[in-house]
Amino acid sequence: MLESLPFSFFNGLIWALIISIVALGLSIIFGTMRVVNVAHGELYATGAILGFIFAVDYNLNFWLSMALAVAVVGVMCAILEKIVYREYEGKVRTTLILSIGLALILQQVALIIFGGEVALMKAPVEGYILLMGQAFPIYRLVAAAMSICFLTAMWYFLFRTSVGLSIRATMQDRDMAAGLGINIDRISMLTFGIGGALAALGGVIASPIISVHYLMGADILTISFIVVIVGQLSLKGAIMAAFLFAPLENVLALFVQPIIARVISFVIMCIIVVIRQTNLVSRIRKERIK
């Protein structure tokens, strides 16, 4: 059992990277527009499905399929921001309803286009290498490398470019950013587009590892949400939380049943959130002082 520990942990790290990409998208959408995007899972699935369709029906190579799928979803999201979400940004309740509607539509469209079947996306790189005495698919390392590249690119974009600065400013204080002359409309469109594109990217990257199925977005949605709120809605926090959650669940699954491993991981994350958000510790301390 314990011999598999390094392997599980390492595999968890890889998943942490993929989750980070998706959660990052969720985070910037929430940060700039206060939209709790419950359609994010469907965007992930749509990305994977489009990637599959481009690769198999149009015979494009993996990278081109990925690029196209991500681009399509990104553009679609940018347009959706303008025509659906625009007037309601900042209002959590209202935009939640819009996202629910979007999720319903996307899911059914995915069923119509892709059907109920399950399919495996062919990895661009095949074969295994020996890692810690265990055969490890090379693609997973490629996926990890890709994820690191994209996360770094996003970091650079958000922290080293003026557009990224505008996005972060909007995340921090929307009204103040508008007051400073930032074109909020354009930023919003860009952010939703990028957020959706990141979800789709995560879907395509994951699709050779897991399968493509029209309901595949359900799991990643919950995990992304957990990671976003444990990260206290900050970008760095989300990534750190992803690195806490994925290896934790993978390692726990060595010792307990997989469902229980997931439940325990969820419970731990929940406790962290509640303690931090309700300032439980300081409130208990205050009670003690009284």
């Binding site: 929430f30 949400f225 957990i226 929940c270 959130v273 509640v274 958000q277």
Partner: peptide, 13 residues
């Protein structure tokens, strides 16, 4: 006690 968005997400979890 949680704020709006935290509340939504926590109930999901």
């Amino acid at each position: 006690r949680l704020s709006e968005s935290y509340f939504v997400i926590t109930t999901i979890i």
